[in-house]
């Protein structure tokens, strides 16, 4: 099963809508709740990142019997130093993003913690692609 969601940069009133839809689908498919939580927390952090930093983006979710693949692709400023961005506490978020309760430099580390696999590629001035995998059979 494949799903695609479009994300609007800067629109915090819609941030989380895609993650909420994915959560509903996973519940309907009877995916175990701890796995749903790990996936939607990672996805929501990713969705908030697109809203907070990018101009627009897309989330692709592919659900298979043994794994869930998520690709979050955005057009935006990109990440100049991914290693630095992965450090807890590092943030370039605006004041507006911080007022929404985010932007404390916890997003990417938290995505890494929840996903079984995480891959980030980025081009400055073009955009960022975050790919994450969660295995449904407990394999890490």
């Amino acid at each position: 099963m494949k799903f695609k969601y479009e994300i609007e940069g800067g629109n915090f009133s819609k941030a989380g809508n895609a993650s909420s839809e994915v959560k509903k689908i996973l519940k309907q498919l009877n995916v175990p709740p701890p796995i749903i939580k790990r996936l939607v927390v990672a996805l929501y952090e990713g969705e908030v990142n697109v809203v907070a930093h990018a101009w627009n983006g897309c989330i692709y979710v592919e659900i298979e019997p043994e794994r869930i693949d998520v690709k979050i692709e955005d057009k935006g400023p990109g990440i100049p130093d991914i290693e630095q961005a992965m450090q807890e506490g590092f943030s370039t978020a605006s004041q507006a993003v911080r007022e929404m309760g985010f932007g404390a430099g916890m997003g990417l580390p938290n995505m890494k913690k929840n996903a079984d696999q995480l891959n980030i590629s980025s081009k400055v001035g073009k955009g960022t692609i975050v790919e994450l995998v969660i295995f449904l059979n407990g394999k890490r």
Binding site: F12, G16, V41, Y44, G101
Partner: peptide, 15 residues
């Protein structure tokens, strides 16, 4: 003390 939509979305995702 954060009363916005993201508080509710966060609660939703975190069960």
């Amino acid at each position: 003390g954060l009363n916005n939509l993201q508080t509710i979305r966060t609660a939703e995702m975190a069960d």
